[in-house]
Measured scan of single mutants.
Amino acid sequence: SHFELRVGTITLHFDNISEELAEELEKLAKNGVHADEIRRWWEEWLK
């Protein structure tokens, strides 16, 4: 499923992401983690 995450002024787009993972990314964003860090985390997870 597709997921969009708003982090400050940036909107990150994720394809084929589980609800659980989407929730984890939302938690990171709410805790003030920068969009670049979240994207890096996601790319690492995909490997």
Rank of each mutant, 00 (worst) to 15 (best):
W45E: 04
T11I: 13
W42H: 09
E24L: 10
A35E: 07
L12K: 00
N31I: 10
D15H: 15
L12M: 09
W41Q: 08
E20F: 08
V33W: 15
E4I: 07
L5Q: 01
N16P: 04
T9Y: 06
W45F: 08
H2W: 10
E20A: 11
E19I: 12
H2A: 07
H2T: 04
G32Y: 06
D36M: 10
R6A: 09
W41C: 05
V33I: 11
L5N: 00
G32P: 04
R6G: 03
N31A: 12
R39T: 10
T9R: 05
W42G: 04
K27H: 08
E23Y: 14
N16F: 08
K30Q: 11
L12P: 00
N16W: 07
L46K: 14
L12G: 00
F3G: 01
A22W: 09
G32S: 05
W41K: 12
K27R: 11
L21N: 05
L25Q: 00
W45A: 06
I38R: 01
A22Q: 15
E23S: 13
T11C: 04
W45R: 11
V33S: 11
R39K: 10
R40Y: 06
A35S: 06
I10W: 02
N16S: 06
E23G: 13
R40F: 07
H34K: 12
N16L: 05
F14H: 00
V7K: 00
H2V: 04
E20V: 08
I17W: 03
I17F: 02
R40A: 12
K30C: 06
I10P: 00
I17Y: 02
S1L: 14
G32F: 08
W41R: 13
L12H: 01
L46V: 12
L25I: 07
E19M: 13
D36F: 09
W42L: 07
A35N: 03
I10F: 03
G8V: 03
E24K: 13
K30G: 07
L28F: 12
R40I: 08
K30E: 10
L21T: 09
H13Y: 13
L25W: 02
S18W: 03
T9Q: 13
A35Y: 07
D36N: 10
K47Q: 13
N31H: 14
L12E: 00
E24A: 11
V33D: 04
E23T: 12
T11W: 07
W42R: 02
E4C: 05
W45G: 04
L25D: 00
N31S: 12
T9A: 14
E24I: 12
W45L: 06
R6I: 14
I10A: 05
E37V: 10
L21A: 09
L46A: 09
E44T: 13
T9G: 14
E23K: 14
E19Y: 12
L46E: 07
E19F: 12
E23N: 12
W42T: 04
D36Q: 12
I10K: 03
S18P: 10
R6S: 12
I38D: 01
S18F: 03
E26P: 01
V33A: 14
K27N: 11
R39H: 06
I38P: 01
L5K: 01
L28R: 04
E23A: 14
K30R: 11
E4F: 08
T11S: 04
E4D: 03
E20G: 09
G32C: 05
L5G: 01
D15V: 10
T11N: 03
A29D: 02
F14C: 03
K30Y: 11
T9W: 05
R39L: 15
V7G: 01
E37Q: 11
E37M: 12
I38A: 03
H34G: 15
R39A: 07
H13V: 14
W45M: 07
L21S: 05
K27Y: 11
R40N: 08
W45V: 07
R40D: 05
R39M: 15
N31D: 09
D36R: 07
E43T: 14
F3L: 09
L28A: 06
G32A: 08
E23H: 15
F14D: 00
H34Q: 13
I17E: 01
E19A: 13
E4N: 02
F3E: 01
E20P: 07
L25N: 00
R6D: 04
E19P: 14
G8F: 07
K30F: 12
E37Y: 13
K47G: 09
L28M: 15
E23C: 05
V7I: 09
A29H: 03
R39W: 15
E44H: 14
E26K: 14
W42Y: 14
L21R: 03
W41D: 01
G32T: 06
I38E: 01
E43V: 14
V33M: 15
G8N: 03
L28E: 01
W41I: 12
R39F: 13
E19S: 12
G32V: 08
E43F: 15
R39V: 15
S1M: 15
L28W: 13
E44C: 10
I38Y: 03
F14W: 05
N16M: 06
S18V: 04
E19H: 12
R40W: 08
L5V: 07
G8A: 02
W42D: 00
R6V: 14
S1G: 14
V7W: 05
N16V: 04
H2N: 05
E20M: 06
S1T: 10
D15K: 10
A35H: 06
S1N: 14
R6K: 15
K30N: 11
N16R: 04
K30M: 12
G32D: 05
I17H: 01
V33G: 07
E44Y: 15
E20Y: 09
I38M: 04
A22T: 05
R6L: 09
I17A: 03
K30V: 09
G8E: 03
T9V: 08
G32H: 06
L21E: 08
E44K: 12
K47F: 12
R40Q: 08
V7P: 00
K47M: 13
H34N: 13
S18E: 03
A29I: 04
E24Y: 14
K27S: 10
H13K: 09
H2Q: 06
T11Q: 02
H34V: 09
V7T: 03
D15Y: 15
W45C: 06
I38K: 01
R40L: 11
R39I: 14
F3V: 03
A29K: 06
A22M: 15
S1W: 07
L46N: 11
A35K: 02
E19V: 13
N31Q: 13
L21I: 12
E44M: 15
I38Q: 01
K47T: 09
I17P: 03
L21C: 04
L12N: 00
L25Y: 02
H13S: 08
L12S: 00
E37I: 08
G8H: 02
R6P: 03
